[in-house]
Amino acid sequence: MTERENMQLVWDHKRPGWVPMMTKASQMLITPEINDRPLFADGNDWFGVPWELDPDNPQFMTHVKPGFSMFDDITEWKDYITFPKMSSLNWEMIGGRTKAMWADKENTMGYVVCNMGAFEKINAIMGFENGLCALYDTEDYIDFVNAYADYRIEEMYYVKKYMDADFMMMHDDWGNQNNLFLSPDLWREIFKEPERRMAEACRNLGMHYMHHSCGYIEPIVGDLVEIGVESWHSVSPVNDLAKIKAEYGDKLVFAGGVDPQVTDRLDASEEDIRKEVRRCIDVLGKDGGLLCGSAVMFSTVQGVDALIEDEGTKYGKY
């Protein structure tokens, strides 16, 4: 059985031969042309938000220029935002490059990351605090999230057609260490339906749909399952994971799971890192259901990803 076939068993909620390690069984297919954020150089994104690279922290990606805010009243968003047309990109070229970089297609699953969901996008455009306060102009906020979902759905169509990806990861951090950023009810009012539409569109195209959210999102995990989100990536242990696994393990694939707050420490020993991988597999990987890896996808500390992969490969046998 190939890594790819083994990973497919997890998506199908069947028992895999071993715990698929994300870094080994899947290949991220990059789309820098979709300018959500310049990743490794200074520059503006498609929406006009300025991003910069921190020369002191070359391992980090770019961040929004501190203090930037395009506008502070979301009711005016249409005066500032026009959505770029995905059709304007040279998809033939992107498809060709994908083929070249995804050499091991037989053995790995390919995925595309939507670098920012609507929540993160608003926070980047307006500034985090303004973006959070904008949640209370709920109607206009919903308007934006819906328009944004349409834009991402258009992307999915091209990603499937020209890149033939197996799954998409939507990156939207709704949680922090202590809680959701907004009440579960407000989340349902604003994000649930657009998220359902994106998941549905993705599945209808024949790709699996994974949502990445850091932090504590336990109160809405059931909602995600209900609306057809097939996988949750990040899966921080600030959530009651044993309970969530017991309740939704037969419907929801857990992805990531290895906590960078444990592994990405300069004072972490090799054994600390290996132990964290075993914790992740013990709590989330029983009888399958886990695509294991760092919750941040790529660790910010050198050497950690290799250790995670090594321990997961050794320990993750069924």
Binding site: E129, L132, Y136, N179, L180, F181, L182, L186
Partner: peptide
């Protein structure tokens, strides 16, 4: 309550 409520 949540972060935005504290902010406003």
């Amino acid at each position: 309550i949540f972060v935005p409520e504290v902010l406003i």
